[in-house]
Simulated scan of single mutants.
Amino acid sequence: MLSRIYQILSILDDPSLIFIGVFRIDGDPILVRCKDKIILLKIVDWLDGHIKASLDMIVAEELGEIGTKFKDLFVRLVPLSKTLVLVMIANEEMSLYKFEMDISSLRSALS
C-alpha cells in the first residue's frame, strides 16, 4: 500500500510544490515528500497539532477541504477517508489553478 501511495505522490514533480504528505488523523505522517528539510520540520510539527482539529471541522461543517496561507505558502488539508488526510503545500509561484487540479487528481487517485 505504501509503495502505491509513493508512486502516486511521485507523479507530481512541480518545483513550486514543496510538500506532499499523507497523515493519519492523529497527526502521524504515513508518507511525506518534501524538498526542504527545515520546512519539513516546521510543517510536521504544526500538522501534528492541527490535523485532528481540522478534520473535525471539515466533518462538522461538511467542508471538502481546508486551505490556508502562511507567508508565501499555500496549504491544503484534504480528507481521503475518516482516518487519512492529504496535505499539500506549494509556494506562491505555483498557479492556484494547477495546485487545485493537482489536489483533485491526487484525491481521486488515492481514494
Rank of each mutant, 00 (worst) to 15 (best):
L2G: 06
H50E: 15
M1G: 13
M101C: 02
I38S: 12
G27N: 09
L110F: 15
R107W: 06
F23T: 11
M101F: 01
S16V: 03
F70K: 05
V44T: 04
M101G: 01
A53F: 06
E65S: 01
A60M: 10
I66E: 07
V87A: 14
G21V: 02
C34P: 01
D13I: 00
S95E: 07
V78I: 09
E100L: 07
M1W: 14
F74K: 00
G49F: 06
C34W: 01
D48V: 08
L96Q: 00
L40G: 04
I18N: 04
P79V: 10
K37C: 05
D36E: 12
D14T: 04
G21T: 02
R24P: 03
L73W: 08
I20Y: 00
L17W: 02
V75C: 09
I20D: 02
D102E: 15
S105P: 01
G64I: 07
G27F: 03
A60H: 06
K35S: 14
F23W: 07
P79D: 09
I25T: 14
G67N: 10
L110M: 08
I66P: 04
I89R: 06
R4Q: 11
D36C: 08
R107Y: 01
M94S: 08
L77A: 08
S16P: 04
K35Y: 07
I89N: 07
A109M: 15
L80V: 10
K52G: 09
K37R: 09
V85F: 13
M101Y: 03
D14Q: 04
V78M: 04
I30G: 09
S10I: 03
L73M: 04
L96Y: 06
L106A: 01
V44P: 02
I25P: 02
I5V: 15
I89D: 05
F99V: 10
D13C: 01
D48E: 14
G64P: 03
M57Q: 14
L31T: 12
V44A: 00
A109Q: 15
E100A: 13
M94Q: 12
D45W: 00
V22W: 09
I103T: 04
L12I: 07
T68S: 10
G49Q: 04
A90M: 14
Q7G: 10
L40K: 14
E92L: 13
M88A: 05
V22K: 13
S3F: 09
L110Y: 11
L63F: 15
K71T: 00
L84I: 14
L31I: 15
V75R: 11
S81M: 15
I39C: 14
K35G: 07
L84C: 12
D14V: 01
L2F: 12
T68R: 07
V44F: 05
S54R: 09
T83A: 11
L9R: 02
M88V: 07
K35R: 14
M94P: 04
D48S: 15
R24Y: 15
I43L: 15
V44G: 00
K52I: 12
L31W: 05
I103E: 03
L86W: 10
I8M: 05
K42P: 01
P29S: 02
S105F: 08
L106R: 04
Y97Q: 06
R4A: 15
I8L: 07
L2C: 04
P15F: 00
